[in-house]
Amino acid sequence: MMRHLKRLYIGIVFFFLYAPILILMIFSFNKSRYMSKWDGFSLKWYADLFSDRDIMSALYYTLLIAVLSTIIATVIGLITAIGIHDMNKLGKGIMVNISYLPILNPDIVTGISLMMLFVFMKLELGFLTLLLAHITFNVPYVIFSILPKLRQMNKHLYEAALDLGATPFYAFRKVILPEIMPGVVTGMILAFTLSIDDFVISYFTTGAGVSNLSIIIYSMARVGIKPTINALSTLLFISVLLLLLIVNKRTSNNNGKEKVI
């Protein structure tokens, strides 16, 4: 009896979580533009999607910003994490706490504060400001993915490498980097997904002509239902699913331990 109840309850919760997405996906193949009736199978919303210049440009900017901000944030975060690790207690405390601010602060506050900064600096809101904003909120996640790995590392390894005649950079590349690599990869994945998914901060820090997918969806949904968004959702859902499956496979191959997901 209890077992069936449990199964039923879990079933209902997963139905609640997935039914809306699944219905959206099914109706992306509907010929009619209304979701009240099924008019037959059609791929026309997908055709519309790929011929919609706004959506395609948003997709381009989303990916471009995600890739650029991930690369830059990972480099900055990696270097900074190493620096922070070597700081004295006070410096470390200050750095960690200030870096935590963008994580703790509500997105909307981060968004408007950056917007005010850019307007104050007379930077025109657009691609550059969007990129700067994304790097700003990504770096802390990279730092906090790498710091624990540095803490776990045996610091004598690096010294040993130096004693054996390695240059600091060579020792970094051959000793430190391999040790902290899992943290770097975690940070990168986090940064990339956060950037792709971000709406609130992007909404406030971008200007005319440069939108990411979230902003496009928001402005379309505000007006009402549009079946092209259904098609877009379907494609995004499938890409997220594939990405997660790959990441999961990768991490479970690596070390059987549970990962950050």
Binding site: L24, I196, D197, L213, S214, I217, A221, S233, V240, L243
Partner: peptide, 11 residues
Amino acid sequence: WMNFLLRTYAW
């Protein structure tokens, strides 16, 4: 991991 705008739009 799904875009939360899409989740909201679904409703």
